[in-house]
């Protein structure tokens, strides 16, 4: 290799390394935020329904602050290179999406669409070649949501909230019907989808237990305290 060619190659490599470091910095920032959110959202399992809105409100500001990271990323990423770097933040972004859909479900009982999620996270369609929310990441987050809700169905009952499993059951079944419409190939998404049936089974069992004992018609006992 001629020495100037070697220099040329080295320069190209150096600029990639520099870019990678800049991205890494932002991803670390996003990681920090998503870890805090995941930590806070863990408390849904021990929070009675009347305290739930306050808990969810406490997570929202952090969720909104993810916009700072996504907008910085869309500045750093060169034109058309979104897919080149996205693996660096996929996991953190999925957690952020998971937080967004979980908060939305618990506060409004609806599914936050992918467009609404992207908007909430400050991801705009104009710079989609630099920063976007791929369907795959959104779908991964939905599966995490179902995993979490199946736990919540159990824990809500322990806290005396007998309606929760029934609401969750309806919602999760609809999501499952949605996932069944997809032609998934043998990848991580497919494996996680296959595990959804266990979550559904768990939720169904809780619904069964609760209805069989006619607990839903009885107002929740006041004695149960937040452990």
């Amino acid at each position: 290799m001629e020495s100037n060619e070697l220099e040329h190659i080295n320069k190209l490599l150096d600029s990639d390394i520099e870019l990678r470091e800049k991205i890494k910095e932002q991803v670390n920032e996003l990681d920090k935020k998503t870890r805090i959110m995941a930590g806070l959202l863990n408390k849904i399992h021990s929070t009675p329904s009347d305290a739930m809105p306050a808990l969810l409100e406490s997570v929202r500001p952090i969720l909104f602050s993810c916009r700072d990271v996504t907008s910085k990323l869309s500045e750093i990423i060169p034109e058309n290179q979104f897919w080149r770097w996205k693996d660096m933040w996929s996991n953190s972004l999925r957690t952020a999406v998971y937080a967004a859909v979980l908060i939305e479900y618990l506060s409004k009982r609806t599914l936050l669409t992918i467009a609404q999620t992207a908007e909430m996270l400050g991801i705009t369609a104009e710079c989609s070649d630099r920063m976007a929310l791929p369907a795959e990441d959104y779908l991964h987050a939905l599966i995490s949501l179902v995993n979490e809700l199946s736990r919540l169905a159990v824990n809500a009952v322990t806290l005396g909230n007998f309606e929760e499993p029934i609401k969750i059951s309806t919602f999760v079944k609809e999501l499952f019907a949605g996932f069944s419409m997809l032609n998934l190939k043998n990848d991580a998404l497919r494996r996680r989808f296959d595990s959804l049936k266990y979550d559904i089974k768990k939720i169904e069992e809780v619904v069964y237990d609760v209805s069989l004992r006619k607990l839903t018609s009885v107002p929740p006992p006041k004695t149960v305290e937040n452990p």
Partner: peptide
């Protein structure tokens, strides 16, 4: 919900 999954299917 199912409508949006229709879009995801087309995407995937």
């Amino acid at each position: 919900v199912l409508q949006s999954f229709d879009t995801f299917r087309a995407d995937l």
